[in-house]
Amino acid sequence: MHSYLYDSTFDGLLTAWFYAYKDDTVYTICRNTDYQPDLLSQPVPVKTQPDKADRIRQSVQHNLSSYTMRNLYLLYLSELPDCDLLGLQYLRLCFQHGAGINHAKHHPVIRKVEDYRRKVYIEYDHMKGFLRFQQIGGQVFYARFAPDHNQLPLLRPHLERRFSDQKMIVHDEKRHCALLYNLQSSMIVPFTAEDAARLLENSRDDSIHAFRQYFQAINIPERANPKQQAGYMPHRYRKYMPETQPE
């Protein structure tokens, strides 16, 4: 039994899939940071090879569909416990039956892929709204969040389109990285809590008081329905939404 370990990049995962595809003794696939040795399997560290990753990309695009490729990428972004192994099962299934197997919504693997895809997109829709910027001097805006799934790559085009005239730092506290945008282009770089603390020194943004007032005033107490509120805006996100926090 083999446990394939890759280096947390999408290319790394594609390479791992490439080598694991023909291996019928795959025990698991995981990031080398998440690996826990066990008695059943031997670890197989995979070195990222862009050419192998590209072969999978080309093959999926050409023989299957871009929808399938998108699903594989979303599985990678989901970072759910068994998403890497599920990706392998999905890949095998698709190559066995063709891209048409995506129609079989009752198939356990396809169903699970759809569920993961939905989870990522639901959170993406949430984050488009729930992200909160604060101004840190000049026209520079800083936001922090800690989404369940890796959302920065998805949010990047949206944020660039929407705020194309303001410099941005969007900090993912869970993955210790940030999206930097300098009016021309954007990139995702490693970013720590200390970096953020240095940035936020001596900066205060008073707009939040006005928004807090607004948040209170627009509520209709006669129609109170906190359960519905929690359904739409889960408590775990509220830490980063200052209007829901007391002053």
Binding site: D125, K128, G129, F130, R161, R162, F163, S164, D165, Q166, L183, F215, I218, N219, I220, P221, R223, A224, N225, P226, K227, Q228, Q229, G231, Y232, M233, M241, E243, T244
Partner: peptide
């Protein structure tokens, strides 16, 4: 590029008040 703002076909909700309605 260089202007601010965009509108999404499906709309975006930014917050929810205690009555469960979106902002």
């Amino acid at each position: 590029k260089g202007a601010i703002g965009s509108a999404a076909k499906s709309g975006v909700c930014h917050s929810y008040t205690a009555d469960g309605r979106c902002i």
